[in-house]
Amino acid sequence: MLALQDRLRRKDEEVIAKIMDGEAVIINLSNGLYYSTDRAGGAMWEMIDAGHRLQDIAAAITSRYDVAGSRAETDVLRLATELLREGLVALDGRDGTPPPGLETADQAKQPYEPPQLTAYRDMEDLLALDPPTPGLQDIPWKG
């Protein structure tokens, strides 16, 4: 079971990810599964990926979003547990030096929605289906 002192690391060889407009898109290359997060989830993923402790991530989230510290801690732990269960990250232990501290936000806090990790488990199967019009010639469409 994860604790707030834990740090995780992305499975570099298998998992690629990108933050896009604050949301994370994650691909597990080993099984072809796609994932996405919403905004708060994207921020959490970015900090998890950078190797920060879960408690530091929750504190950073509390400073950036309009959310109570206890709620942020619960949500960070839940997202981290899901990422671990999906095999996207591994436990990095509690030892070692965490990266430099996280910046706290000075500006007005953003509205908060709990992080959501959305999985697209069928993407590989869907892409394997025949494309809608294979083998057709270039045909004029007289509409």
């Binding site: 809608p132 019009t133 270039d138 045909i139």
Partner: peptide, 8 residues
């Protein structure tokens, strides 16, 4: 998914 000149 597709549109002109694809047809279906």
């Amino acid at each position: 998914e597709l549109f002109w000149p694809y047809i279906g």
